[in-house]
Design a protein around this nucleic acid. Structure first.
Lengths: 134, 134
DNA sequence: CTCAGTGCAAACGATTTGCAGGGCC
DNA sequence: GGCCCTGCAAATCGTTTGCACTGAG
């Protein structure tokens, strides 16, 4: 694990625990949530350290930063390409593993002068927990 | 214009000018940018008023709030359903008018227990202004 | 040893809010 | 004339950063 690190990046316990905790869940936690998770194992860790490491791991493509609507950014320990859905009731964010629509990029390319690099699809809906009481 | 307002929503000059300025451009300005645009016509307007009105117009579906990655939220005077692309170099955001992919919603629905309400596609790429010097 | 990384606290930037006055309906 | 809305400023919230110290390599 973390063999993806640069030679001059150190494998600190903080960094290791942050990554482990993030990979343990599928809930796309915010920085504060990661902080809380990690603090159970490293009570003296600072929130700044969490932010710094999440940023750094994102730059190295070891994790992914999700820039959803809403206030806080979320982080995903799964870097495989997939879409996301957010429940408009409880704000839960879950993965959607459907095949990437390559035509989207093609269609977009022909409709504008951009060189298309990537796309992301965010669905919004109501999750099974929130549906019954609607 | 603004006949979409509730009976108890007042048509103040601030509100009117904010909407007019927003509809005038296709640049998806941030709240501060709207503030600057509006201030040329209403020099004494407060930033808080701009935020309050943008929020309110969003709730009434008269404008749209775009929650892109990055720091500030952007606003779109065009509420018709369309996708967006952001230039990773200059952060410009432009419209992509390709047909909505209905299959996306269908595929997503069958892959999760959600009731799908909507989806949005954000492309990232490099715009024509930034391409030559790459 | 050295220098990247840490904890802590202060700084920051975007957005929100409390309040007293103002003007639309 | 009521009350929605405004300007202003202070407050809030997520995130970033400066600094002196620590510990990985």
């Amino acid at each position: 694990m973390l063999n993806e690190l640069d030679n001059n990046m150190r494998l600190t316990s903080q960094r290791q625990v942050i990554l482990e905790e993030l990979r343990k869940v599928k809930s796309h936690p915010t920085a504060t949530e990661v902080y809380d998770m990690v603090r159970k194992r490293l009570p003296r860790i600072g929130l700044g350290t969490v932010y710094r490491n999440l940023e750094l791991l994102t730059e190295k493509n070891i994790i992914k930063k999700l820039e959803f609507g809403g206030e806080q950014k979320r982080f995903d320990g799964d870097t495989s390409s997939h879409y996301h859905i957010r429940c408009v009731e409880c704000n839960r964010v879950e993965d959607i593993f459907i095949k990437r629509h390559k035509e989207l990029d093609k269609n977009a390319a022909s409709s504008c002068g951009y060189k298309i690099l990537d796309h992301h699809v965010q669905f919004s809906g109501i999750c099974s927990h929130c549906l019954p009481d609607a």
